[in-house]
Amino acid sequence: MNVDLFFQYIVAGITYGTIYAVVAIGFNIIYNATGIINFAQGEFVMLGGMTAVSLHRFLPLPSAVLAAVLITMIVGALIEVLFIRWLHKPSVLRMIIITIGLSILIREIALHIWGEGVKALPYFTGTSVSSIKLGGVFVSPQVIWVVGISAVMVALLSFFFNYTIAGRQMRACSANREAARLCGINAKNMVTLSFALSAAIGALGGCIVSPITYVQYDSGTPLAIKGFTVAILGGLGNSFAAVAAGLLLGILESFSIWVMPAAYKDVIAISILLVILFVRPSGLFGSREAASMKEF
């Protein structure tokens, strides 16, 4: 393998890894607020991408993306209000099954709206063949968009959770729901907010990556499994570690083509998930102690 190809693999790994990290952060936001793993997380990504593609037919690209994110955000909030908000202390099994049901419904609705075809937004700048030279390596401009927008998103999220009232209230709720409620925070609204936020982040991820990876009605589930892998790798609930874990998985997966046919790419990622679950469920960066305190 020559140096060029090596860097191409790295770049591809970073691109996919970024999206896995975005899905993982979506998982984390809802998990922190509710203790629920939302199995429909991947569908938010698909929904964002699909909606943006449809809207782009009569809206300019930036507005289409923005509108798609808003629409998915509303869908996320609605899902929480309709299906989760009013359940009284649901069991874990019940929540797993409900969110899996939701993921299937969203996927099937998408199938009926958009069909089975593969869709994509145009490249944000340039075309599929244009490239930028970065320190001797040629990189598609879309990769810059993906990494750039995701980085801004992580920065904004971190600002949101640390410096805004709503963000701090959400953190207070995840630390101790009962205490937060006593301090006058409406915990239920915080949960709704977490679904909206997580849907918005997923949708934006789906938009920026669609020129490269394309979207299809059923592209959510593999993303969900890999996003979960990344969330676990980083330690459930820890979003900064998820970024590192996402890049790691993306790059590993990218290089796996070396040793295995591309058709088995997912097998690699999922085997990593299984191995991590077996040997270190608290994640590579998480502390064992902290993981054992959590309720599953």
């Binding site: 793993i37 797993i96 469920p281």
Partner: peptide, 11 residues
């Protein structure tokens, strides 16, 4: 248990 078992079997 729980989510982890569900995800692992899904995997």
């Amino acid at each position: 248990k729980g989510h982890y078992l569900a995800m692992a079997t899904l995997g």
